[in-house]
Design a protein around this nucleic acid. Structure first.
Lengths: 239, 239
DNA sequence: TTCCACATACTGGTCTGACCACTTGACCAC
DNA sequence: GTGGTCAAGTGGTCAGACCAGTATGTGGAA
Protein backbone atom coordinates (compact mmCIF):
# COMPACT_ATOMS: atom_id res chain seq x y z
CA UNK A 1 0.00 0.00 0.00
CA UNK A 2 1.38 3.35 -0.99
CA UNK A 3 -0.27 5.82 1.32
CA UNK A 4 0.10 9.54 0.94
CA UNK A 5 -0.79 12.28 3.39
CA UNK A 6 -4.32 13.37 2.66
CA UNK A 7 -4.38 16.74 1.04
CA UNK A 8 -6.24 19.18 3.27
CA UNK A 9 -7.40 22.03 1.18
CA UNK A 10 -7.71 25.15 3.24
CA UNK A 11 -10.46 27.49 2.18
CA UNK A 12 -8.31 30.52 1.34
CA UNK A 13 -5.91 28.28 -0.59
CA UNK A 14 -8.79 26.93 -2.60
CA UNK A 15 -10.04 30.42 -3.39
CA UNK A 16 -6.52 31.55 -4.26
CA UNK A 17 -6.06 28.65 -6.64
CA UNK A 18 -9.34 29.28 -8.39
CA UNK A 19 -8.68 32.95 -8.98
CA UNK A 20 -5.09 32.27 -9.93
CA UNK A 21 -6.15 29.70 -12.49
CA UNK A 22 -8.67 32.08 -13.97
CA UNK A 23 -6.00 34.74 -14.34
CA UNK A 24 -3.30 32.46 -15.69
CA UNK A 25 -5.66 30.74 -18.11
CA UNK A 26 -6.84 34.10 -19.36
CA UNK A 27 -10.46 33.65 -18.31
CA UNK A 28 -9.99 36.86 -16.42
CA UNK A 29 -8.38 39.19 -18.91
CA UNK A 30 -5.85 41.84 -17.89
CA UNK A 31 -7.57 45.07 -16.97
CA UNK A 32 -10.78 43.31 -16.14
CA UNK A 33 -12.39 43.92 -12.77
CA UNK A 34 -13.01 41.13 -10.31
CA UNK A 35 -16.33 40.89 -8.51
CA UNK A 36 -16.32 42.60 -5.13
CA UNK A 37 -15.07 40.69 -2.11
CA UNK A 38 -18.59 40.35 -0.75
CA UNK A 39 -19.87 39.06 -4.06
CA UNK A 40 -17.01 36.57 -4.43
CA UNK A 41 -17.60 35.36 -0.90
CA UNK A 42 -21.25 34.84 -1.70
CA UNK A 43 -20.65 33.09 -5.01
CA UNK A 44 -17.92 30.82 -3.63
CA UNK A 45 -19.83 30.12 -0.46
CA UNK A 46 -17.05 31.21 1.87
CA UNK A 47 -16.50 34.05 4.27
CA UNK A 48 -15.18 37.41 3.23
CA UNK A 49 -11.93 37.11 5.20
CA UNK A 50 -11.15 33.95 3.25
CA UNK A 51 -11.68 35.77 -0.05
CA UNK A 52 -9.72 38.70 1.22
CA UNK A 53 -6.76 36.58 2.20
CA UNK A 54 -6.68 35.01 -1.25
CA UNK A 55 -6.88 38.38 -2.98
CA UNK A 56 -4.08 39.81 -0.89
CA UNK A 57 -1.90 36.89 -1.85
CA UNK A 58 -2.81 37.51 -5.48
CA UNK A 59 -1.75 41.09 -5.02
CA UNK A 60 1.53 40.07 -3.42
CA UNK A 61 2.26 37.92 -6.46
CA UNK A 62 1.48 41.00 -8.58
CA UNK A 63 -1.35 39.24 -10.39
CA UNK A 64 -4.06 41.68 -9.38
CA UNK A 65 -4.19 45.23 -8.19
CA UNK A 66 -6.35 46.02 -5.18
CA UNK A 67 -7.49 49.60 -4.74
CA UNK A 68 -9.17 50.78 -1.58
CA UNK A 69 -12.66 52.00 -2.49
CA UNK A 70 -12.28 50.90 -6.09
CA UNK A 71 -12.46 47.63 -7.90
CA UNK A 72 -9.79 44.93 -7.88
CA UNK A 73 -8.39 44.54 -11.37
CA UNK A 74 -6.40 41.86 -13.13
CA UNK A 75 -2.82 42.68 -14.06
CA UNK A 76 -0.92 41.42 -17.08
CA UNK A 77 0.89 38.66 -15.26
CA UNK A 78 3.47 38.03 -17.95
CA UNK A 79 4.64 41.59 -17.46
CA UNK A 80 4.47 41.79 -13.71
CA UNK A 81 4.70 38.40 -12.05
CA UNK A 82 7.97 37.19 -10.59
CA UNK A 83 9.82 33.92 -10.87
CA UNK A 84 7.84 32.51 -7.95
CA UNK A 85 4.95 32.06 -10.34
CA UNK A 86 6.91 29.46 -12.29
CA UNK A 87 5.63 26.34 -10.48
CA UNK A 88 2.07 27.40 -11.24
CA UNK A 89 2.89 27.89 -14.89
CA UNK A 90 4.82 24.67 -15.31
CA UNK A 91 2.01 22.48 -14.14
CA UNK A 92 -1.42 23.65 -15.14
CA UNK A 93 -4.58 21.65 -14.59
CA UNK A 94 -2.35 18.84 -13.44
CA UNK A 95 -0.44 18.69 -16.72
CA UNK A 96 3.00 19.89 -17.69
CA UNK A 97 3.11 22.95 -19.91
CA UNK A 98 5.67 21.93 -22.49
CA UNK A 99 6.67 25.42 -23.56
CA UNK A 100 7.40 26.29 -19.95
CA UNK A 101 9.40 23.09 -19.52
CA UNK A 102 11.40 23.95 -22.63
CA UNK A 103 12.08 27.39 -21.25
CA UNK A 104 13.29 25.96 -17.95
CA UNK A 105 15.68 23.63 -19.74
CA UNK A 106 17.05 26.51 -21.79
CA UNK A 107 17.51 28.70 -18.77
CA UNK A 108 19.21 25.92 -16.88
CA UNK A 109 21.67 25.36 -19.69
CA UNK A 110 22.40 29.07 -19.84
CA UNK A 111 22.76 29.71 -16.15
CA UNK A 112 24.38 26.63 -14.69
CA UNK A 113 27.71 27.23 -16.44
CA UNK A 114 27.83 30.74 -15.01
CA UNK A 115 27.13 29.41 -11.56
CA UNK A 116 29.86 26.85 -12.07
CA UNK A 117 32.29 29.55 -13.09
CA UNK A 118 31.54 31.55 -9.97
CA UNK A 119 31.81 28.45 -7.82
CA UNK A 120 35.22 27.81 -9.35
CA UNK A 121 36.28 31.33 -8.42
CA UNK A 122 34.99 31.26 -4.88
CA UNK A 123 34.21 27.72 -3.77
CA UNK A 124 35.57 26.77 -0.37
CA UNK A 125 36.96 23.43 0.71
CA UNK A 126 33.67 22.72 2.46
CA UNK A 127 31.86 23.10 -0.84
CA UNK A 128 34.37 20.86 -2.61
CA UNK A 129 33.75 18.18 -0.04
CA UNK A 130 29.98 18.52 -0.25
CA UNK A 131 30.22 18.10 -4.01
CA UNK A 132 32.31 14.98 -3.50
CA UNK A 133 29.68 13.55 -1.19
CA UNK A 134 26.93 14.28 -3.68
CA UNK A 135 28.86 12.45 -6.39
CA UNK A 136 29.38 9.50 -4.09
CA UNK A 137 25.66 9.42 -3.35
CA UNK A 138 24.99 9.55 -7.07
CA UNK A 139 27.17 6.48 -7.51
CA UNK A 140 25.45 4.64 -4.70
CA UNK A 141 21.80 5.38 -5.35
CA UNK A 142 19.78 3.17 -7.61
CA UNK A 143 16.35 4.76 -7.63
CA UNK A 144 15.94 7.28 -10.48
CA UNK A 145 13.96 9.73 -8.35
CA UNK A 146 16.48 9.51 -5.53
CA UNK A 147 19.27 10.20 -8.05
CA UNK A 148 17.41 13.27 -9.24
CA UNK A 149 17.24 14.53 -5.70
CA UNK A 150 20.93 13.93 -5.24
CA UNK A 151 21.67 15.77 -8.46
CA UNK A 152 19.66 18.66 -7.08
CA UNK A 153 21.79 18.73 -3.95
CA UNK A 154 24.88 18.67 -6.15
CA UNK A 155 23.74 21.86 -7.82
CA UNK A 156 22.63 23.20 -4.49
CA UNK A 157 26.20 22.97 -3.31
CA UNK A 158 27.42 24.54 -6.52
CA UNK A 159 25.15 27.48 -5.88
CA UNK A 160 26.53 27.68 -2.37
CA UNK A 161 29.97 27.87 -3.89
CA UNK A 162 28.95 30.62 -6.26
CA UNK A 163 28.14 32.74 -3.22
CA UNK A 164 25.55 34.84 -5.00
CA UNK A 165 22.19 35.75 -3.47
CA UNK A 166 20.58 36.20 -6.85
CA UNK A 167 21.59 32.82 -8.19
CA UNK A 168 20.64 31.28 -4.87
CA UNK A 169 17.12 32.67 -5.02
CA UNK A 170 16.82 31.77 -8.70
CA UNK A 171 17.86 28.24 -7.88
CA UNK A 172 15.30 28.05 -5.09
CA UNK A 173 12.56 29.20 -7.44
CA UNK A 174 13.58 26.81 -10.19
CA UNK A 175 13.83 23.98 -7.72
CA UNK A 176 10.37 24.79 -6.39
CA UNK A 177 9.09 24.43 -9.93
CA UNK A 178 10.98 21.22 -10.67
CA UNK A 179 10.50 19.22 -7.48
CA UNK A 180 6.74 18.69 -7.74
CA UNK A 181 7.27 17.16 -11.18
CA UNK A 182 10.28 15.09 -10.22
CA UNK A 183 8.46 11.77 -10.30
CA UNK A 184 7.32 12.35 -13.84
CA UNK A 185 10.63 13.69 -15.10
CA UNK A 186 13.11 11.43 -13.34
CA UNK A 187 13.04 8.94 -16.20
CA UNK A 188 13.67 11.57 -18.83
CA UNK A 189 16.60 13.02 -16.92
CA UNK A 190 18.08 9.67 -16.00
CA UNK A 191 20.62 9.79 -18.81
CA UNK A 192 22.11 12.97 -17.42
CA UNK A 193 22.49 11.86 -13.81
CA UNK A 194 24.21 8.72 -15.07
CA UNK A 195 27.06 10.79 -16.47
CA UNK A 196 29.11 10.44 -13.32
CA UNK A 197 32.24 11.39 -15.17
CA UNK A 198 30.59 14.65 -16.15
CA UNK A 199 29.89 15.57 -12.54
CA UNK A 200 33.44 14.65 -11.61
CA UNK A 201 34.81 16.93 -14.29
CA UNK A 202 32.69 19.80 -13.11
CA UNK A 203 33.85 19.29 -9.57
CA UNK A 204 37.47 18.94 -10.65
CA UNK A 205 37.33 22.28 -12.44
CA UNK A 206 35.74 23.90 -9.39
CA UNK A 207 38.35 22.44 -7.09
CA UNK A 208 41.06 23.62 -9.48
CA UNK A 209 39.58 27.12 -9.31
CA UNK A 210 39.35 27.16 -13.08
CA UNK A 211 36.20 29.10 -14.08
CA UNK A 212 36.54 28.49 -17.79
CA UNK A 213 36.96 24.77 -17.36
CA UNK A 214 34.01 24.69 -14.96
CA UNK A 215 31.87 26.52 -17.45
CA UNK A 216 32.83 24.16 -20.23
CA UNK A 217 32.45 21.00 -18.17
CA UNK A 218 29.01 22.08 -17.01
CA UNK A 219 27.92 22.71 -20.54
CA UNK A 220 29.17 19.30 -21.63
CA UNK A 221 27.25 17.73 -18.78
CA UNK A 222 23.94 19.48 -19.34
CA UNK A 223 23.72 19.96 -23.07
CA UNK A 224 22.95 16.42 -24.20
CA UNK A 225 19.83 15.89 -22.09
CA UNK A 226 18.77 19.46 -22.74
CA UNK A 227 18.98 19.09 -26.50
CA UNK A 228 17.28 15.72 -26.47
CA UNK A 229 14.39 16.92 -24.38
CA UNK A 230 13.92 20.18 -26.22
CA UNK A 231 13.80 18.29 -29.49
CA UNK A 232 11.30 15.86 -28.02
CA UNK A 233 9.17 18.72 -26.77
CA UNK A 234 9.34 20.34 -30.16
CA UNK A 235 8.14 17.16 -31.81
CA UNK A 236 5.33 16.80 -29.29
CA UNK A 237 4.20 20.34 -29.91
CA UNK A 238 4.08 19.68 -33.64
CA UNK A 239 1.76 16.76 -33.08
CA UNK B 1 6.23 71.25 -7.31
CA UNK B 2 7.18 67.61 -7.08
CA UNK B 3 4.17 65.88 -5.65
CA UNK B 4 4.06 62.22 -4.78
CA UNK B 5 1.09 60.02 -3.94
CA UNK B 6 0.78 59.88 -0.17
CA UNK B 7 1.84 56.54 1.20
CA UNK B 8 -0.92 54.86 3.16
CA UNK B 9 0.33 52.02 5.25
CA UNK B 10 -2.25 49.32 5.61
CA UNK B 11 -2.27 47.38 8.84
CA UNK B 12 -1.54 43.91 7.41
CA UNK B 13 1.25 45.38 5.29
CA UNK B 14 2.78 46.93 8.35
CA UNK B 15 2.62 43.65 10.24
CA UNK B 16 4.03 41.78 7.25
CA UNK B 17 6.94 44.18 6.99
CA UNK B 18 7.78 43.92 10.65
CA UNK B 19 7.81 40.14 10.71
CA UNK B 20 9.65 40.00 7.40
CA UNK B 21 12.34 42.32 8.70
CA UNK B 22 12.76 40.26 11.83
CA UNK B 23 13.22 37.13 9.76
CA UNK B 24 15.54 38.66 7.17
CA UNK B 25 17.64 40.41 9.79
CA UNK B 26 17.95 37.19 11.73
CA UNK B 27 16.23 38.46 14.86
CA UNK B 28 13.93 35.51 14.39
CA UNK B 29 16.27 32.59 13.82
CA UNK B 30 15.37 29.69 11.53
CA UNK B 31 13.52 27.00 13.43
CA UNK B 32 12.32 29.44 16.03
CA UNK B 33 8.61 29.62 16.81
CA UNK B 34 6.63 32.78 16.37
CA UNK B 35 4.20 33.87 19.05
CA UNK B 36 0.66 32.69 18.45
CA UNK B 37 -1.60 34.74 16.20
CA UNK B 38 -3.64 35.91 19.17
CA UNK B 39 -0.53 36.93 21.05
CA UNK B 40 0.91 38.79 18.04
CA UNK B 41 -2.40 40.57 17.55
CA UNK B 42 -2.36 41.63 21.18
CA UNK B 43 1.26 42.75 21.18
CA UNK B 44 0.96 44.65 17.91
CA UNK B 45 -2.38 46.13 18.84
CA UNK B 46 -4.17 44.88 15.73
CA UNK B 47 -6.86 42.36 15.01
CA UNK B 48 -6.18 38.72 14.48
CA UNK B 49 -7.29 38.70 10.82
CA UNK B 50 -4.65 41.34 10.13
CA UNK B 51 -1.95 39.21 11.72
CA UNK B 52 -3.25 36.17 9.96
CA UNK B 53 -3.14 37.84 6.57
CA UNK B 54 0.47 38.88 7.15
CA UNK B 55 1.46 35.39 8.25
CA UNK B 56 -0.17 33.78 5.25
CA UNK B 57 1.78 36.08 2.99
CA UNK B 58 4.94 35.13 4.85
CA UNK B 59 4.07 31.49 4.25
CA UNK B 60 3.47 32.13 0.57
CA UNK B 61 6.94 33.63 0.33
CA UNK B 62 8.22 30.47 2.05
CA UNK B 63 9.66 32.45 4.95
CA UNK B 64 7.64 30.73 7.66
CA UNK B 65 5.83 27.46 7.99
CA UNK B 66 2.33 27.51 9.43
CA UNK B 67 1.01 24.29 10.91
CA UNK B 68 -2.58 23.88 11.93
CA UNK B 69 -2.66 23.20 15.63
CA UNK B 70 1.07 23.71 16.02
CA UNK B 71 3.30 26.71 16.20
CA UNK B 72 4.34 28.84 13.23
CA UNK B 73 8.07 28.47 12.71
CA UNK B 74 10.68 30.46 10.86
CA UNK B 75 12.21 28.85 7.80
CA UNK B 76 15.75 29.30 6.56
CA UNK B 77 14.91 31.90 3.97
CA UNK B 78 18.18 31.63 2.06
CA UNK B 79 17.32 28.02 1.36
CA UNK B 80 13.66 28.40 0.63
CA UNK B 81 12.74 31.89 -0.52
CA UNK B 82 12.29 32.66 -4.20
CA UNK B 83 13.58 35.44 -6.39
CA UNK B 84 10.61 37.60 -5.44
CA UNK B 85 12.34 38.24 -2.13
CA UNK B 86 15.13 40.11 -3.89
CA UNK B 87 13.70 43.64 -3.58
CA UNK B 88 13.44 43.18 0.18
CA UNK B 89 17.02 42.00 0.39
CA UNK B 90 18.46 44.70 -1.85
CA UNK B 91 17.13 47.55 0.24
CA UNK B 92 17.11 46.89 3.94
CA UNK B 93 16.27 49.51 6.50
CA UNK B 94 16.17 52.00 3.68
CA UNK B 95 19.76 51.29 2.66
CA UNK B 96 21.23 49.34 -0.22
CA UNK B 97 22.81 46.03 0.69
CA UNK B 98 26.03 46.14 -1.28
CA UNK B 99 26.63 42.42 -1.44
CA UNK B 100 23.17 41.97 -2.91
CA UNK B 101 23.81 44.76 -5.40
CA UNK B 102 27.04 43.08 -6.42
CA UNK B 103 25.24 39.83 -6.90
CA UNK B 104 22.63 41.47 -9.09
CA UNK B 105 25.30 43.01 -11.29
CA UNK B 106 27.02 39.66 -11.66
CA UNK B 107 23.81 37.89 -12.53
CA UNK B 108 22.91 40.57 -15.04
CA UNK B 109 26.24 40.20 -16.78
CA UNK B 110 25.87 36.46 -16.88
CA UNK B 111 22.28 36.31 -18.05
CA UNK B 112 21.82 39.22 -20.42
CA UNK B 113 24.12 37.74 -23.09
CA UNK B 114 22.12 34.52 -23.04
CA UNK B 115 18.92 36.47 -23.42
CA UNK B 116 20.47 38.36 -26.30
CA UNK B 117 21.48 35.13 -27.98
CA UNK B 118 17.95 33.78 -27.72
CA UNK B 119 16.55 37.06 -28.99
CA UNK B 120 18.87 36.82 -31.97
CA UNK B 121 17.57 33.34 -32.69
CA UNK B 122 13.92 34.18 -32.35
CA UNK B 123 13.33 37.90 -32.40
CA UNK B 124 10.54 39.06 -34.69
CA UNK B 125 10.45 42.21 -36.78
CA UNK B 126 8.19 43.78 -34.18
CA UNK B 127 10.87 43.28 -31.56
CA UNK B 128 13.54 44.71 -33.86
CA UNK B 129 11.44 47.81 -34.29
CA UNK B 130 10.75 48.17 -30.59
CA UNK B 131 14.48 47.97 -29.95
CA UNK B 132 15.04 50.67 -32.52
CA UNK B 133 12.52 52.92 -30.80
CA UNK B 134 14.16 52.36 -27.45
CA UNK B 135 17.51 53.36 -28.88
CA UNK B 136 15.98 56.47 -30.40
CA UNK B 137 14.46 57.36 -27.04
CA UNK B 138 17.85 56.80 -25.44
CA UNK B 139 19.32 59.32 -27.87
CA UNK B 140 16.62 61.85 -27.20
CA UNK B 141 16.29 61.72 -23.44
CA UNK B 142 18.43 63.92 -21.27
CA UNK B 143 17.40 63.01 -17.76
CA UNK B 144 19.54 60.22 -16.27
CA UNK B 145 16.62 58.54 -14.54
CA UNK B 146 14.51 58.68 -17.69
CA UNK B 147 17.40 57.14 -19.63
CA UNK B 148 17.57 54.31 -17.10
CA UNK B 149 13.91 53.64 -17.63
CA UNK B 150 14.38 53.59 -21.37
CA UNK B 151 17.29 51.19 -21.00
CA UNK B 152 14.99 48.96 -18.99
CA UNK B 153 12.44 48.96 -21.79
CA UNK B 154 15.25 48.11 -24.23
CA UNK B 155 15.99 44.98 -22.23
CA UNK B 156 12.32 44.38 -21.80
CA UNK B 157 12.00 44.11 -25.55
CA UNK B 158 15.06 41.88 -25.70
CA UNK B 159 13.39 39.55 -23.24
CA UNK B 160 10.30 39.61 -25.40
CA UNK B 161 12.48 38.57 -28.31
CA UNK B 162 14.02 35.73 -26.32
CA UNK B 163 10.53 34.27 -25.99
CA UNK B 164 11.27 32.47 -22.75
CA UNK B 165 8.90 32.42 -19.79
CA UNK B 166 11.67 31.79 -17.33
CA UNK B 167 13.82 34.68 -18.48
CA UNK B 168 10.71 36.86 -18.62
CA UNK B 169 9.83 36.14 -15.01
CA UNK B 170 13.45 36.54 -13.93
CA UNK B 171 13.55 39.88 -15.65
CA UNK B 172 10.36 40.96 -13.92
CA UNK B 173 11.80 40.02 -10.55
CA UNK B 174 15.10 41.74 -11.19
CA UNK B 175 13.31 44.80 -12.45
CA UNK B 176 11.12 44.87 -9.37
CA UNK B 177 14.30 44.94 -7.31
CA UNK B 178 16.03 47.58 -9.40
CA UNK B 179 13.24 50.08 -10.04
CA UNK B 180 12.76 51.27 -6.46
CA UNK B 181 16.46 52.16 -6.34
CA UNK B 182 16.58 53.74 -9.76
CA UNK B 183 16.89 57.30 -8.49
CA UNK B 184 19.92 56.43 -6.43
CA UNK B 185 21.60 54.31 -9.08
CA UNK B 186 20.88 56.31 -12.23
CA UNK B 187 24.07 58.33 -11.81
CA UNK B 188 26.23 55.25 -11.37
CA UNK B 189 24.77 53.58 -14.42
CA UNK B 190 24.85 56.68 -16.58
CA UNK B 191 28.09 55.68 -18.29
CA UNK B 192 26.48 52.53 -19.59
CA UNK B 193 23.33 54.05 -21.01
CA UNK B 194 25.49 56.59 -22.81
CA UNK B 195 27.07 53.83 -24.89
CA UNK B 196 24.58 54.26 -27.69
CA UNK B 197 26.86 52.46 -30.08
CA UNK B 198 26.82 49.47 -27.77
CA UNK B 199 23.04 49.24 -27.87
CA UNK B 200 23.10 49.60 -31.64
CA UNK B 201 25.55 46.74 -31.94
CA UNK B 202 23.41 44.50 -29.78
CA UNK B 203 20.38 45.31 -31.85
CA UNK B 204 22.27 44.81 -35.10
CA UNK B 205 23.33 41.34 -34.01
CA UNK B 206 19.77 40.51 -33.02
CA UNK B 207 18.41 41.77 -36.32
CA UNK B 208 21.08 39.77 -38.14
CA UNK B 209 19.93 36.66 -36.23
CA UNK B 210 23.47 36.12 -35.09
CA UNK B 211 23.36 34.67 -31.53
CA UNK B 212 27.10 34.65 -31.00
CA UNK B 213 27.49 38.27 -32.07
CA UNK B 214 24.55 39.25 -29.87
CA UNK B 215 26.13 37.51 -26.92
CA UNK B 216 29.44 39.21 -27.49
CA UNK B 217 27.98 42.65 -28.10
CA UNK B 218 25.91 42.42 -24.95
CA UNK B 219 28.93 41.48 -22.94
CA UNK B 220 30.89 44.42 -24.37
CA UNK B 221 28.03 46.72 -23.47
CA UNK B 222 27.51 45.55 -19.91
CA UNK B 223 30.94 44.57 -18.69
CA UNK B 224 32.52 48.01 -18.21
CA UNK B 225 29.90 49.42 -15.83
CA UNK B 226 29.63 46.05 -14.11
CA UNK B 227 33.33 45.81 -13.44
CA UNK B 228 33.57 49.42 -12.32
CA UNK B 229 30.72 49.11 -9.89
CA UNK B 230 31.76 45.76 -8.49
CA UNK B 231 35.21 47.14 -7.85
CA UNK B 232 33.71 50.18 -6.19
CA UNK B 233 31.50 47.98 -4.03
CA UNK B 234 34.49 45.87 -3.11
CA UNK B 235 36.41 48.96 -2.02
CA UNK B 236 33.44 50.21 -0.02
CA UNK B 237 33.12 46.90 1.75
CA UNK B 238 36.80 47.01 2.69
CA UNK B 239 36.29 50.37 4.35
C1' DT C 1 7.60 0.49 36.28
C1' DT C 2 6.03 1.00 31.67
C1' DC C 3 2.93 2.29 28.38
C1' DC C 4 -1.14 3.76 26.34
C1' DA C 5 -5.62 6.19 26.35
C1' DC C 6 -7.65 10.38 27.14
C1' DA C 7 -8.73 14.87 28.93
C1' DT C 8 -7.08 19.39 28.40
C1' DA C 9 -5.14 23.40 26.91
C1' DC C 10 -3.01 25.23 23.72
C1' DT C 11 -2.43 26.23 18.30
C1' DG C 12 -4.29 27.68 13.72
C1' DG C 13 -8.83 27.72 10.57
C1' DT C 14 -13.21 29.81 9.65
C1' DC C 15 -17.27 32.44 10.06
C1' DT C 16 -20.47 36.36 11.21
C1' DG C 17 -21.67 40.91 11.33
C1' DA C 18 -20.54 45.24 12.17
C1' DC C 19 -18.31 49.69 11.26
C1' DC C 20 -14.66 52.74 9.14
C1' DA C 21 -12.27 54.76 4.97
C1' DC C 22 -12.05 55.52 0.40
C1' DT C 23 -13.56 56.07 -4.59
C1' DT C 24 -16.90 56.88 -7.87
C1' DG C 25 -20.36 59.18 -10.13
C1' DA C 26 -24.57 61.75 -10.17
C1' DC C 27 -26.45 65.93 -9.05
C1' DC C 28 -26.49 70.65 -7.81
C1' DA C 29 -25.02 75.41 -6.95
C1' DC C 30 -22.13 78.89 -8.41
C1' DG D 1 -17.24 74.79 -16.63
C1' DT D 2 -15.81 74.44 -11.89
C1' DG D 3 -16.18 72.88 -7.56
C1' DG D 4 -19.21 71.11 -3.59
C1' DT D 5 -22.26 67.56 -1.85
C1' DC D 6 -24.10 63.26 -1.19
C1' DA D 7 -25.27 58.39 -1.74
C1' DA D 8 -23.85 53.93 -2.99
C1' DG D 9 -20.50 50.67 -3.52
C1' DT D 10 -15.80 49.09 -2.62
C1' DG D 11 -11.99 47.63 0.19
C1' DG D 12 -9.95 47.98 5.29
C1' DT D 13 -10.44 46.64 9.99
C1' DC D 14 -12.22 44.93 14.02
C1' DA D 15 -14.43 41.95 17.82
C1' DG D 16 -15.91 37.71 19.23
C1' DA D 17 -17.27 33.26 18.60
C1' DC D 18 -16.70 28.48 17.39
C1' DC D 19 -14.44 24.52 14.74
C1' DA D 20 -10.33 21.62 14.00
C1' DG D 21 -6.19 20.11 14.65
C1' DT D 22 -1.74 19.28 17.86
C1' DA D 23 0.89 18.85 22.01
C1' DT D 24 1.19 17.57 26.69
C1' DG D 25 0.45 15.80 31.05
C1' DT D 26 -2.17 12.69 33.91
C1' DG D 27 -4.40 8.90 34.93
C1' DG D 28 -5.20 3.83 34.89
C1' DA D 29 -4.14 -0.67 32.91
C1' DA D 30 -0.65 -4.06 31.91
Amino acid sequence: MALKPVARRLVPDEVFDQILSDVVDGELAPGESLPSERRLAEVLGVSRPAVREALQRMAQARLVEVRHGGATTVREFRRSAGLDLLPRLLVRNGELDLSVARSILEARLAIAPEVAALAAERGSAAVHEALQEAIAALEADEDPVARQRVALTFWDHMVDGADSVVFRLMFNSLRAAYEPTIDALAVLMEAEVSQLEGYREVRAAVVAHDPEAARAATERLLRPATTTLITAIHDLEEA
